[in-house]
Amino acid sequence: MSPISADQLRKIKLKIQNENALRYGVGRAKVTVHMGTCGIASGARDVLESLLVDIAQYKATDVIVAVDDCVGLCEREPLVTILKPGQKPIEYEKMNPDKMRHVFKEHFIVTEIQEPVEGESGQSNEGKRSQSN
């Protein structure tokens, strides 16, 4: 550690807020992977792994991942639900790692690129910058 400036202080704050978004329950979206016995049997674990790898790769730590029990649609497992604040949840069924990767990019990479990259308000700035580099 070395002495920091007020500006660096702000940067550390944003970085930590982004890293710890899931701790405070404030993310840009919540992705739920249904991990009942049926889900796990049909490969939900691999879907989860793929999602986590993508989040790490794109530093999208403000995308919150949750695991949940079976929702009773066992024949359509693995199921993934994406919930963005103020929007209706979107369900994806019969997922696999490839589809997950695609869905992730669709939701969190492609759409974000269309938005202006600069701006002070969002907590996702760090994530945006890093994926545009």
Binding site: N20, L22, R23, L48, E49, L52, V53, D54, I55, A56, Q57, A60, T61, I64, V65, A66, V67
Partner: peptide, 10 residues
């Protein structure tokens, strides 16, 4: 590398 999906606050 995988992202952390859960914090266990002990």
């Amino acid at each position: 590398m995988k992202a952390v999906r859960s914090h266990l606050l002990l």
